[in-house]
Amino acid sequence: MSYCLGIDIGSAYSKGVLMDDRELRASYYCLSGGDFRLTADKIKKELLSQADITSKDISRTVATGYGSKMVAFADKEITDISCHSKAISTLFPSVKTIVDFGDLYSKVFLIDGKGNLLNFLLSGKCAGGSARVLKVMAKVLQVNIENLGDLSFKAKKDIEFNTGCAVFAESEVISRVAEGFAKEDLLAAIHKALSAQCYSLAERLGIERDFALTGGGARNKGLIKAMGDLAGMDVHVPDAPHMTAALGAAILADEALKRLEVRGQNFFVDK
């Protein structure tokens, strides 16, 4: 048994993936909360419990995400961009362009056929370009965030919308609601505006086929469709896009472990 743990401490949600020789054994996610150290411990405990193993069974841990430096038990920190790249290239080897809809930022990165990172861009500091704007809108329109995508498909009117700033976008939605626009139409407009913002980021980097979406925002069908329409091509989306960085971290942990074993240094790995 060579268990590897990937743990992604994001700004809003934290996720963990436990693998045994590339086989998924357990996964878990929860709100990040106000203490990233405690959250990391909680995720580890849950994964150990699911797999019915102890801490000593874990051969290597890679931490990623905004709070990765807070994961005291990690052997290595690797950025979420590299972790996403690794997971996506493993799941979809033909992908060259990735858009990650995160809660804090949206990110676009180019990878080569081997999952190596070539270049990347982040959305601006404003939440207007991140998946956070969807949460804000769900709250304003009093809609379950899980249903945003499906509702947007029922739109009947085309509305022009601006998500340059999440705060202004919130005010704009409230004004439009007061003007009598249907929430379905507003949601479609928000998806379109958000995807346009991220797409322009991708265009700055140069889009190369194939194209994949990842991150928590990629759970939203409306956003996937809007991005696909803009790109004019099918987009690949993992089954659990919010878990991709944690999955990549676990794969990178596994790769490092195997490299260490090949070099005969596995004795130094704390088992």
Partner: peptide, 8 residues
């Protein structure tokens, strides 16, 4: 992330 890109 930039350093990882350069590494790659």
């Amino acid at each position: 992330a930039f350093i990882e890109t350069l590494e790659s």
